[in-house]
Amino acid sequence: MSIPDPAISFVSEHGILLEFVASDCLVIDPVFQQRLCQLARLLRDHSHTGPLLCDIVTAPGSLLLVLHDGRTARRLLRHAETLWRASAQKTIDTNVVSIPVIYGGEFGPDLEQAALMCGMDSQRFAAQHAQGTYFVQSLGFMPGFAYLGGLDPALHLKRKDTPSARVPAGSVAIGGSNTGIYPSESPGGWHIIGRTSLTLFDPRAEQPCLLQPGDTVKFVAVTEHQS
C-alpha cells in the first residue's frame, strides 16, 4: 500500500493534526484505518515517543497527537514517520470482540422503520447487520462510544432529523455510514436497531472501554433468553 503524506496542522500549540485523506473523502479503507490505529499504539508504547505524548485521538483518516510540550513536535513527527514506514510491512493483529445483540422489539424500536427505509424486512436487515465484520474507527461523542466502520452500504441511514431524548445504554444503532453502541444512556440521533447486555464503558475498571481503536467487531444475534 502506498503511504500518503499527511497534511500537518496545529490544533492548539500542543496538538498536531495529521490528516491522511482529503476533507471531502467519505469512506475510509478499513486496512488503512487499522494501520492508523496501529501507528497510534506504536507511538504510545515506544520509549522515544510515549513520554512526549499526552493523548492520541484516532479519527477516520486522521490522528490528533497531543504533546506535553508542542516544541517537541518535530522530534515526534520524525519518529512517527519512521514507525509508519516500518509498520508498512507488518501484518496487523487485531483484537476481535463479539457482541451479542437482541435485534428489534423493545430493544430496537427503530428496526422496522430502518428496514423500511432500506427497502427490506426487519429480519433481513438484522441478519445483514449481524453478518458484517466491523472495525473501530475511533471513539468519541461520549466515553466508550465506538464509531464502527465497515457497514454494508445497503444499511446506511441518514441520522434522525429529531434526536431521541433518551437512548438506553447498550443500544446498537446506525448513523450515516457507521454503526455503534451507546455505552451510557444519552440523547441520540442514530437509529436504534437492537441492544447488547455488555458493559461498554466502566470508568472504574482497569480496562475502562470494551472497544479500543483498531479492534475488529462482530455482532451475534441472540434472543432475550440467551442474553
Binding site: 496538538g15 471531502d24 479519527a59
Partner: peptide, 17 residues
C-alpha cells in the same frame, strides 16, 4: 460548488478549538 460545507469526517478536537 463541489466542496462540502462541513467536514464529512470528524477529527480529534481539544478544549480551546
Amino acid at each position: 460548488s463541489d466542496k462540502p460545507s462541513t467536514r464529512l469526517l470528524s477529527i480529534g478536537v481539544l478544549p480551546g478549538l
